[in-house]
Amino acid sequence: MGTPWPARPPGRARRWAFADGAYRGLLTAFALFVFVIAALIVYESARGSGLSVRTFGWSFLTSTEWDPVAGRFGALPYLYGTLVSSGLAMLLSVPLGLGAAVFLAELAPRRVGDAVAFVVELLASIPSIVYGIWGLFVLAPFLRTALEPWLIRHLGFLPLFEGFPFGIGMLNAGIVLAVMVLPTIVSLSREILLSTPRTLREAALALGSTRSEAIGVVLDAARPGILGAVILGLGRALGETMAVTMVIGNASRISASLLAPGATMASVIANEFTEATGDLYLSALIEIALVLFVLTLLVNAVARLLVHWAAGGRRDVAGTA
């Protein structure tokens, strides 16, 4: 079979193999570090909240009493505040965001769509503290003097719109959160709509669909992705801290009215953490962080499952383009 290939000098072969292994090992260690950090987050929040968990058990989640002086802590008002403010935000932002995404992807001329989407994406990078300032100094006066009096006058018979026009409160928080998650929902949904095959639209139109009926077909095909975008937005709203802290009014009570001040899990941590006196108080706050962590984890997991499940059998659609 002729002369065999000369082997590399054995020393060099060993050195190279070692270098390759070492390099790979180093990178693997970095990758492992991602795990370590995740583990640290779990460990720290679990350890820090241990005292509170042992003291209150499950009643921590069902009690509405938050009394640092008496040393009794229940997180229900904050859980409620987080869910209601985020729910309100989704109620406002999902229809608006979807409509805007459809406009940008389907109706607007390509150049207009690109330009607006670019601006919307930039707005996603505005820090939350800036939204907070705007909510506090611009939106709150508007709500106090215009929108809330109007709501009270016309819809005041509903418990939802009972009370006084404070300007800050659940409504303000919901609106600010909606504005904050809109860029996420709009730009992701637009991208998803643009990536659905053009031929679907053409097929619908060629069958005699009106424009909105053709859009319906496209939305139907894009549903899993859009659902993912919406839930991603929800995850953001749940954990949002600064803007909410500035506009929600920070009152630890449950009130049916959207005009009343409230508090969220994130806002109570931001407000009280540095002032927490005593181990139990601090531990209760850390347990709130743990609950918030678990909640966002669940939401993200559900989002993934939903998308995965909804995308099942539809993968071929995504492939045709």
Partner: peptide
Amino acid sequence: GMVFQRPNPFP
């Protein structure tokens, strides 16, 4: 009616 180059059934 129109039939396209690539089959394009709705999902």
